[in-house]
Amino acid sequence: MHTQYKKCFITVGTTRFDLLCQSIQQPAVLRALNKLGYREITFQIGNSDCEPGHYEKEGVKIEMYRFKDSLKEDMRSADLVISHAGAGSCLEALGENKPLLVVINEDLMDNHQMELAEQLHMSGNLYYCTCDTLNTLETVDFSWLSPLAKPTPNNFVKYLDSVFTVKNLSK
């Protein structure tokens, strides 16, 4: 069905997410990705307990690195983004209009990040799962997702400009 191979980008942000690193490399998950046509994975692993480098498992090429100044390039060239639930990473992926699967880190004590993933899932912008349910990935239809509405900072900026005034603005 999928003739050309697709790229998948995975990011854990500035933290660590050991379980995701292990789960992605499970044969079942890699086979699911392979079946969907993903032959190349770029994985930003942050401080996770994992060795950066190039690997090939189950017919999928995996490139792991810890950090880059900007993930924009990797994000843009990907056909699917898998991300931790951090707001920054989610918004970046949705801003690029990429199909997004969020993996919830259940080890985090204060798991408020789940709130955002749940909310954006309810409004149909992304899918989310945990590391245990990652292998159900092949049943997910990403074409159902709708893009996230653009931010509207103008009213806030106008409000600020009305309460905070200066003598004369040089403009």
């Binding site: 942000g13 500035t14 933290t15 951090g86 707001a87 920054g88 990473s89 918004l91 970046e92 931010p151 900072p153 103008n154 806030f156 900026v157 600020l160 400009d161 905070f164 200066v166 603005l169 040089s170 403009k171």
Partner: peptide
């Protein structure tokens, strides 16, 4: 991380001269 990105985006909407 995310907090920085978020705040800097708000900064970018504000008048840098004001």
């Amino acid at each position: 991380g995310g907090h920085t990105t978020e705040l800097l985006r708000i900064v970018s909407h504000l008048d840098a001269e004001k």
